[in-house]
């Protein structure tokens, strides 16, 4: 059994609408970021990998197991869905115990595993707390803990940081990085910062198609020399918005410091090192994605 996820020419339709189009990816152990806008097909891909959706065509093998073999796939997969919740009237311990039971763990295994995991996600002291009383961040951490109950080879995490405050987000990212030391962790997000902080290998998905697969380093290289900053008077801003792809703005009195993307350079602008957000935007634009910038950064 290898430790690779191989996706070849994967297609998925919802009725007549194509949600995934010839997706081909190879995912190795460690953190793998799946970046894309809302509606890009990330959740569909994640759910297909979790054997929760039927594909139309193509092939998917997870650690050598064909996706059609759901029984075996379920044994090696951990999944944190986008809309994560548990029975609100149960407490943390009861909910974990119930899911561990469904994961096929015996009594002793359940006790030991739950203890380790709650410690890992820093919820030990909240073990008796009802699910409904947990904060958003605690719930997400509990989500990771439940996804690790069966000690999966592959952990699929769908939009886990949406709605979290900065402190919780950082804590959550660190937790994911820790977990990824022993397995494949696929992190789907539209928040570029999450990818930047945790992933070395990524894929960009747009309209169901893979626009990019590779390292963060290579993605940044694509945008190298294409990112500039310039300080302009506020009055010039509408013109700039029309002509350039602005990825950041900082107002200082009447002046505005603008960060933008362009392939051809511009006068009075200073070139700067691209970040992953710039590179992502540049890549989307380069591949003909319809972007709605209008002076606002569409990504957090």
């Amino acid at each position: 059994m290898n430790n690779i996820i191989e996706i070849k020419n994967l297609n998925k339709f919802y009725g007549k609408k194509q949600a995934l189009s010839d997706v081909t990816l190879s995912i190795k152990p460690g953190m793998f970021g799946l970046l894309g806008r809302n509606g890009a097909g990330k959740t569909t891909l994640m759910r297909t990998l979790a054997a929760l959706l039927q594909k139309k065509s193509g092939s998917v093998t997870i650690c050598g197991i064909p996706i059609e073999n759901e029984k075996e796939i379920r044994k090696i997969i951990g999944y944190l869905p986008q809309e994560f919740s548990m029975y609100p009237s149960m407490n943390v311990m009861e909910a974990m115990d119930y899911l561990a039971l469904l994961s096929g763990l015996n009594k002793q295994e359940r006790r030991e595993r739950i203890e380790v995991l709650l410690q890992k996600v820093n919820l030990t002291e909240h073990r008796k707390k009802k699910i409904r009383a947990l904060s958003g961040g605690m719930k997400r951490r509990l989500g990771i803990a439940q996804a690790l109950l069966n000690n999966p080879k592959v952990l699929i995490v769908d939009e886990p940081t949406a709605g979290l405050d900065p402190e919780e987000r950082i804590r959550f990212r660190n937790l994911l990085s820790e977990v990824a030391e022993e397995r494949i962790v696929i992190l789907s997000t539209h928040i570029v910062g999450d990818i930047e902080a945790t992933c070395e290998n990524i894929a960009i998905l747009d309209s169901g198609k893979v626009l990019y697969q590779g390292t963060v380093h290579n993605l940044l290289a694509v945008a190298d020399g294409k990112v500039f900053t310039k300080t302009v008077d506020r009055k010039e801003l509408p013109t700039l918005k029309r002509d350039l792809m602005i990825t950041g703005m900082h107002t200082q009195g009447r002046d505005v410091s603008v960060r933008f993307l362009t392939e051809h350079g511009t006068s009075n602008a200073e070139a700067c090192a691209p970040n992953i957000e710039d590179a992502y935007m540049f890549y989307l634009k380069k591949n003909g994605a319809e972007l709605e910038v209008n002076g606002n950064v569409i990504l957090e």
Binding site: R47, A50, A51, L52, K71, R74, K75, I77, G78, Y79, P81, F84, S85, M86, Y87, L99, L101, L102, S103, G104, Q146, N150
Partner: peptide
């Protein structure tokens, strides 16, 4: 919770 349960080994 449906998906959390669907994904289990049981």
């Amino acid at each position: 919770m449906s998906e959390l349960i669907y994904i289990r080994k049981i």
